[in-house]
Write a protein that binds this DNA or RNA. Structure first.
Lengths: 336, 336
DNA sequence: CTGTTAGCGCGTTCAG
DNA sequence: CTGAACGCGCTAACAG
């Protein structure tokens, strides 16, 4: 427990320069001569000075910390987003705290209030499925702090939304199946109150329309897209032997459906061709022939963090949407 | 930006009670009458008082925050540990920050220094594979702060280690294969400088010995247990057609090996029976018959967090190891 | 049990 | 460009 706490006053005393000047020098203010700056910085290094972040936080009412709030850290897409955010945050000298909402509104609310109490400077969030009320986020904003939404957009004022072009991605994914010769393409869809799932469904419908394939509402299965939902929907699919294609709005559900269909003697992709969403490496292991839409999580994370930090540093608020391109990863070398 | 910052002085003034008493009341000190406590708490609620954590942190030089440092948050086992830690931390009123070392020593060092600078009260860590030098952790300790190791133990003084009984788990896993009739059991092993992999290898050897199965060093494959390693090792396995069993010290490698073996015409588990490690739900999807050792991540997380918080609150340091039981999850209903 | 006093370490006025 | 002085909001130590 060797307690050596060098403060700016120690430096100040040793050098005979006032502590306020030391403070300015340490913050690289332009109101200090280059010469004295160097003098101070050298002495600081020599004495092993380390700024007391806690004191600095109190004084500035800032923490150089941004928060990521998302449903689950273990999902591949989110894990890649986190990696992207951490990279740019580190570059810009920001700390990152990660919080899981588990798609629960109550948890999300608690998290935000905690973040407010801890004075994080900004929030990057993919809102919980359950969330339809945004007061908690507004109260964070009302303190003058920026919020950036990623993946799941939100039409709150003065916010940036970062998403991929879900319509086009879905369109291409469905088109891929059509060009493979599928005539009866099922769609695993998510809750329609979430924009992103709505857009994906529309992309699916758009592709069918373009190729003049009749729309059959019985081929559209709406769920939370969990593993269990995948099995449930696979069972429903088996009731309709005409189905020869599946476009799933999410890999998790697609994968468990594929597994179930296989146990029931279906061949993938010979009997049923599948396109999923999110380029999860696990998907590649399970079903090497699975075609998926790749969401560029790392880039999304970097861009989102950049936007947020820009707003924090300039104290500006923005209100725009950035839409990134996603690509279709086609793995099947197979004959279909 | 409605800035209403009620402080204890506002409450103090309104009530005509000194601010220090207000502070004590808000901290539920027993040095304040129940009556005045209520008075103060009510007024605080009425005025919408919210404690300024930053000021409190500065004054106490504490943050009510603990950090989790681990290789990768996306691994199933670690994700469950995080969940366990978050649960008990929340109960005890601690914040949690999560940091990924990506198994890099340099990153781990940076993280720890950052945590020191940010005055976290304690660290829960599963050290990076690369780490062999512990100065960064010692400097955290030297500030009087506790560290708890989980999963990957570390023989630092005054630390708690929380692990499962890797020897017994491996012994049972191998025994399971032997009882299934396997005679030539391969073992995917990790780097032997890590205790846990050494213990697992010893468990494997112990089981072979008990059943008087000769040990063949050519059946033991040492690697980092990545997906790529799984494929590499699967190829080596194919060179020895006698192999009828595989005990892998990690699911990831086991899974990719299984996938590869299948593409080469091997039937699992008829030709080669497999036991993996970590009860990852993905494993269950990919290979429903896979037997795995289940590591109780959630419990490990809870126990680890409890230990750490105990030490933080009592300012005591401990030096002991807790070893939890793990169980074998046998999924194969198959005929082998 | 409560009030008084005195900072925690830093950043930011305002003079000069 | 630099120094003096003050205060962020809270809590610890010491009285009484």
């Amino acid at each position: 427990m060797n307690q050596k706490k060098i403060t700016i006053h120690d430096i100040s005393r040793v050098l005979g320069i006032d502590s306020s000047t030391v403070s300015r020098a340490l913050n690289d203010s332009d109101r200090v001569t280059q010469k004295t700056k160097e003098l101070i910085l050298n002495k600081a290094k020599e004495l092993g000075y380390q700024r007391n972040i806690l004191a600095s936080n109190l004084r500035t009412n800032k923490t150089q910390t941004i928060a990521i709030v998302l449903p689950r850290i273990s999902r591949y897409f989110f894990a890649t987003v986190i990696a992207g955010i951490e990279e740019t945050a580190q570059e810009k000298g920001f700390n990152v705290v990660i919080c899981q909402s588990l798609d629960s509104f109550e948890r999300e609310k608690k998290i935000i209030h905690n973040l407010i109490a801890n004075r994080v400077d900004g929030i990057l969030i993919s809102i919980a499925m359950e969330t339809t009320n945004y007061e908690h986020l507004e109260s964070f904003q009302s303190l003058g702090n920026p919020i950036v939404f990623f993946d799941r957009p939100c039409h709150l004022d003065n916010c940036v939304n970062i998403t991929i072009d879900n319509y086009t991605a879905s369109f291409k994914a469905t088109e891929h199946l059509i060009l493979k010769g599928c005539k009866h393409i099922a769609h695993f869809s998510g809750k329609q109150n979430i924009d992103l799932y709505k857009q994906r469904k529309e992309g699916y419908l758009g592709a069918l329309q373009k190729y003049q394939i009749p729309i059959d509402e019985n081929l559209i299965f709406e769920s939370n897209l969990s593993e269990e939902d995948g099995v449930i929907m696979a069972k429903k699919m088996l009731e309709n032997p005409e189905i020869d294609g599946l476009y799933s709005s999410n890999d998790t559900a697609a994968i468990s459906a594929i597994q179930y269909l296989k146990t029931q003697g279906k061949k993938i992709p010979q009997d049923i061709a599948v396109v999923g969403f999110n380029n999860d490496p696990i998907a590649a292991i399970i079903e090497p022939s699975l075609t998926t839409v790749n969401q560029p999580g790392f880039e999304i994370g970097k861009i989102a963090a950049n936007q947020l930090i820009l707003q924090i540093e300039n104290k500006t608020s923005q209100n725009n949407s950035l839409i990134l391109n996603s690509e279709l990863i086609i793995r099947d070398s197979s004959n279909r």
